[in-house]
Amino acid sequence: MRSVLAGALVAGVLFAVPASADAPSSWESSPDVSGFQALLVLFLIPLGLFLVISLLAALPSLVKGDSYEPGQAWRSEGEWFGGPLKGVAGADQVDSKQLESAGDQGGAGARF
């Protein structure tokens, strides 16, 4: 009995063949894909998308120039954080009377 089982197992291994079956006739037959089409879909289109997205990401800094990095010289226009809506133009309109009404200003300054 044991030898029969072992023989069946060995025969199963020796005579094993890949399973194969025809596609059902109701399925649509897929068109043949050429090598160029495969290359286009798998490599060229992703590469093109990569280049376009990279360009779009880099475009703002290319147009505006590089943003400030520590140690760089500053050449940009003035920026006022928390300033009035008029911006620096409002400061140009400040006269001596308004400056006096601002009160006793204090503070400190330094070079660096």
Binding site: K64, D66, S67, Y68, Q72, A73, W74, R75, S76
Partner: peptide, 16 residues
């Protein structure tokens, strides 16, 4: 030295 064109969005956000 290199020059710059103002703060980046992240730097502005940090100051704000």
């Amino acid at each position: 030295s290199a020059t710059s064109d103002g703060f980046s969005a992240g730097q502005r956000a940090a100051i704000d």
